[in-house]
């Protein structure tokens, strides 16, 4: 067991709860989907690329975004669906960039496959654009060292872990996730911070993500 460094400022766990706001906007064809992706608020793009993670937290997070699911299962354009599903969200630090990548992927596909524009969703299977409204509030949990940190990680809601790993980075345009930032800047443990920011959280379920984080940190504590 290594001696634990105690931070001057604790890591204060927040949680993020969300409400889905309906826009009334719907797409029946890929052309409509593309046009709306370009114009809807960023909160919509965020919702449709992250909703699945929270609502299906027990499953392997696939398909990872609503656009890919709709394009594959409803429109039947498997290849485009695969391209959308495999967009590496970790490469994009803002919703703006992510939106541009999604739009460009559809646009390029339609250029190469003009017949795909003719596909349409049956009545009742349209793509409905929804906005994610986030409410962020502090919890009563705070950690001064890695031991306390890992104990809290075991019991905090999945919403809190989600907020610090996903939303803080992409929606608040921070350079890294909150956990890595605190571990590096308050505990001075650059290596541990790097190993947390280095893995792709989008390829895990949220419970799996919690277990992985706890395992990495406990391994570090035991030296």
């Amino acid at each position: 067991m290594t001696d634990l460094i105690r931070a001057k400022e604790p890591f204060r766990f927040c949680t993020r709860l969300h409400l889905s706001e309906l826009t009334g906007l719907r797409a029946t064809t890929l052309g409509q989907l593309l046009a709306l992706i370009k114009e809807v608020p960023g909160s919509c793009v965020y919702h449709h690329t992250h909703r699945f993670l929270q609502q299906h937290q027990y499953l392997s997070p696939e398909p990872p975004n609503d656009f890919a699911y709709w394009v594959t299962d409803i429109i039947g354009e498997d290849e485009l669906g695969e391209r959308l599903a495999s967009i590496d969200t970790m490469q994009y630090s803002t919703i703006r960039d992510l939106r541009e990548k999604i739009a460009a992927t559809i646009e390029n596909y339609l250029k190469d496959n003009p017949l795909a524009k003719l596909q349409f969703a049956r009545s009742g299977e349209e793509f409905h654009f929804i906005k994610s409204v986030s409410f962020i509030l502090p919890t009563n949990y705070a950690a001064y060292d890695l031991k306390e940190f890992s104990e809290i990680l075991k019991k905090i809601t999945i919403d809190s872990i989600y907020f610090h790993i996903f939303e803080a980075r992409l929606r608040f345009e921070k350079p890294t996730n909150d956990f890595s930032f605190w571990i590096e800047n308050s505990l001075g443990d650059k290596e541990l911070a790097g190993s947390i920011s280095g893995f792709d959280p989008y390829t895990r379920t949220l419970e799996d993500l919690r277990e992985t984080l706890v395992r990495i940190i406990e391994k570090r504590i035991s030296g």
């Binding site: 409400l19 906005k131 409204v133 409410f135 962020i136 509030l137």
Partner: peptide
Amino acid sequence: LRDYILLFLSLYHPEDVIHLC
């Protein structure tokens, strides 16, 4: 219950990201 409470709070916060600190 959570959605209803958030819905009530949304009446006082028109923005998309709401900090309840």
